[in-house]
Design a protein around this nucleic acid. Structure first.
Lengths: 199, 199
DNA sequence: TACTATACGGAGGATGCCTCCGCTTCGCAA
DNA sequence: TTGCGAAGCGGAGGCATCCTCCGTATAGTA
């Protein structure tokens, strides 16, 4: 997956490739069907490797879950780094929020499974949320300093709003485009008015 | 389990007895080992019935989980009713808090499993928490009206404190008596001072 | 090319979920 | 008390999943 990451996985080239394949397959499968409804055998099949290989890299289901979660957060962090030097602070923030929302959707399907074994105050979880909070703060601050986003918005508001938005949009029966539309509304609200509003 | 409940289960005596046995066995097993680490076969074995009988009464794992949860809440509600006419409002409140804390411990092991399939805003869950909130409010108000508990305490504080206490006390490595000691401290703090404190 | 450490793959044992159906027991009525 | 039908019981067994183990294959090295 996140090829930008420092080499942390297995040594041999084939092992490393399989590791990435498994991570990708698991991410996809979890997103599609929820973390509880995918068998490890299916993930191995999707990745095109044997079940034994999966277990060598991820000794337990939990390990795979954690790896996927961490991989996503790592990816977001890398993205934030790039966006912080993006030419348009407003676009950067929008892009970030979009990515964050997408992540939230995946996370939702995994959090229950993760919580069940990890505990609510796990080190992994709190470290990850700290990272994400930091990224959001930095991007928001930059956009505000550039004067393109309302100065009275706080990062906590942003995080919570996005979260709420995901929850609402993913309700059963909602059309898939709804999340995007709601997201646009939110972004429009963030920007400072381009022209004075009529009284 | 809660024999005080109105007849709501199966009709025939043996079926009814097995229902109660299963509920009791499941409650015990869940409390001992967590809701995720007990097989339904073991619960049937503990209850002394066949697996088929378990499935007749509780068509899915979820149903058993819900039944145990609801049974506990029902039991607490009955207890609250009794405590509301207890001679000592302070003792009644203490007893209630103790029972509530014990429930919280069980609940903790089940909530993840319940959430996973029920959803956070399930009708069952919200109904149950409403009941518990009501009970706590009534018992607290009575103790405050009797002048034995500090008037500035709110029921929400109580619920949250107890919750936090359970979480902290159940941390790995903590000794089993800790919860009780912390609980005593909390109760002492609630009571109005018996003598004026020295300046 | 030859060699070895490393990794692969999938058969298979263990366990758990749930269904199905022949046997047992309850509760009622005569 | 006895007989009977309905209700309930129990557990074998089918199916899915988890995880281990070990013979085979391959990457990397000299």
């Amino acid at each position: 997956m996140n090829a930008t990451r420092a080499p942390a996985g297995p040594k041999r080239a084939d092992a490393r490739r399989n590791y990435e394949l498994l991570l990708a397959a698991a991410t996809e499968a979890f997103a599609e069907r929820g973390a509880d409804d995918v068998s490890l055998e299916e993930i191995a099949r999707r990745a095109g490797v044997g079940i034994g290989t999966l277990y060598r890299h991820f000794p337990a289901r939990q390990a795979l879950l954690e790896a996927v979660y961490k991989d996503q957060v790592d990816g977001l962090e890398v993205l934030a780094g790039k966006l912080l030097v993006h030419e348009s602070p407003a676009e950067a923030l929008a892009e970030w929020m979009r990515a964050f929302a997408a992540f939230g959707r995946t996370k939702r399907s995994m959090s229950a499974a993760l919580m069940a074994t990890l505990g609510k105050q796990s080190e992994l979880l709190s470290a990850c949320s700290k990272v994400l909070r930091g990224c959001t703060e930095a991007l928001l601050a930059r956009a505000q300093e550039a004067g393109v986003v309302r100065p009275d918005v706080q990062s906590a508001d942003l995080l919570r709003l996005t979260h709420a938005l995901i929850m609402a949009a993913d309700a059963p029966g909602g059309d898939p485009g709804q999340a995007d539309r709601m997201f646009s509304l939110l972004m429009d609200g963030l920007l400072v008015a381009q022209a004075p509003t009529a009284g």
